[in-house]
Design a protein around this nucleic acid. Sequence first.
RNA 1: GUGAGUGUAGCUCAAUGGUAGAGCGCCGGACUGUGGCUCCGGAUGUUGCGGGUUCAAUCCCCGUCACUCACCCCA
Length: 427
Amino acid sequence: MIPGIRGTRDILPAEVGRWQQVERVARAVCERYGYAEIRTPVIEREELFAKGTGESTDIVQKEMYAFTDKGGDRITLRPEATPSMVRAFVEHSLEQELPFAKLYSLGPMFRYERPQKGRYRQFHQLDVEVFGVTDAAVDGEVIEMASAFVSELGIDTAELVINSVGCADCRTRFSAALLEALGERVPELCGDCQRRARTNPLRIFDCKVPADQPIIDALPHSEDFLCDACRAHFDEVKRHLDAYGLLYRVSHRLVRGLDYYTRTTFEILGAGLGAQNALLGGGRYDHLVKRLGGPDRAGIGFAAGLERLVLALSEGAGGTTVADAFVVAIGDASWPAARILARDLRKAGLTALIDYDGHSSKSQMKRANRSGARRVLILGEDELARQQVTIKEMGTGHQHTVARDQVTAHLLEIFHGRHRDDGIHRA
RNA sequence: GUGAGUGUAGCUCAAUGGUAGAGCGCCGGACUGUGGCUCCGGAUGUUGCGGGUUCAAUCCCCGUCACUCACCCCA
C-alpha cells in the first residue's frame, strides 16, 4: 500500500456530511451578506506571498510548498487565500464589475508544518474579503457575519476577541515602546521571545511560557499607542459591535501573525479544540492592495478553518444520505426488470439502491438493512408475472403490493405527505 | 524545526523472550422468496518498516516511518 502524505487526510464518507453542512452554511451566509464567490488557483507565484503575506512571517520563511516549475518559474502552493484574492481583485478590476467588492472563496491551503490537532499540511478555509471600504461599519458587519456564521453552525461556546494594532505609524511607535519597556529584561525572557524582540516585538504577546507572563503583563497596550484616527476607528468598530448586541472581549494581546494587518484584528476561539483553538481570524489590511500593485484600496476579511469548524460541530451534526428504496430482485429472470425499476425511481428523483451480483434475497435484504434504506421494493418472479412490486417498510416490517406502473407515483405520494427533503435526512 | 507518547485483524484492544487472541464488524448456515434479534460455523494478521542482541523477538536495543498531543506557527 502506498500511504497518503503526512499532514493530509481523507475526509471519509462517515464525516463528509459534517463538511457538507459547514460548506452549505458558509455559502448561505456569504450569499446572504452580499458576497460573490470566486475561485482562484491553488498555485501562485511565490513572490505573491513573499510580498503579500510578508517576508518576515514563518509562513513565507519556512512553510511554503514552493518549487521551480519546468519553465523555470518560482511557484508555490498557496499557504493562505488573501493575497490570491487581492491579486484576482486587481488583475480583473473587480471593483468595476461588482456593486460591492465583497468576495468569498472556499478551498484548500498548504503549509509545511508539523501536524497536530486542528492543524494539517493541507487544510481548508473559507476566506472572506471586502475591498475599498474604510468605514468602520464594514469592520462591524464583517465581524457580525463571522459571528453569525459560527452560531448558525450551532457552535455556541465560541468567544469573540478583538483588538486594534493601529496603522503603520502606531505600530512603529508601539514596537519602540515595547522594546523600551522591556529594556534590559529581554534576556530574562524565553528564547522565542528574545527572537521576537528582534524580529517582531508585537508577537511577544503570543508567548505561553509561564515565567514570561509577569514581564509581559507589565508591558504597555497597543490601544494606548493608537493615533487619533486609529483610536476613533476602533471606538467606532466597538460601537457597531455593541449595536449588534455582540459579546466580545478586547484583548491587547491579540496580535495576529501576518504582516499586513492594520487597525482592527479579531478572532473567534472555539472550546475543546486543543492548542489550535482559533476557528477563524482576520482583520483589516489597508495597504495590501496597493502593495501588490493595485489601486490604493483598503481591505478587511477573515479566514475560517474548516477542519476546526467540523471539529467544533456538535456530535449529531451533518447526516448522511439514505436511500428512499432498495430494490431486491429474486430469481434470475427478475434482474433486468429490477434494474429498470431502479432506473425509473431515480428518474423520478428518488434515491434507489440495487445489488449487482445475483445474490440471494437474504443477502440482498441484509445489504438493504445495512444501507439504512427505508423500504425494500421486491421484484420476484411472482411479482413479475402479476405486474406488481412488493413494498416492505423496513421500520415496521409490514409489506404490501402495488401495481408496477404505480410504484413511483405511490412513493412520491408518501414523500409528498412527509415534506421530503431531497433524500437528505439528519441522523 | 523541537519534545513526549503510541504503532498487534476492517475497528476497539489483549497477550507472552518460545512465531498471536477477544469483542465488535464481515461472510455463511439454522430460515432453499425477506433484513434487524438469537444460536451455530467461518475467513483475515508480513504484530508499521529495517537492522541488532539472542538458540529463539510481537515483547529487549538502535534506526526509520507513521499517528497523537504539545512547543513553534496559525485557520
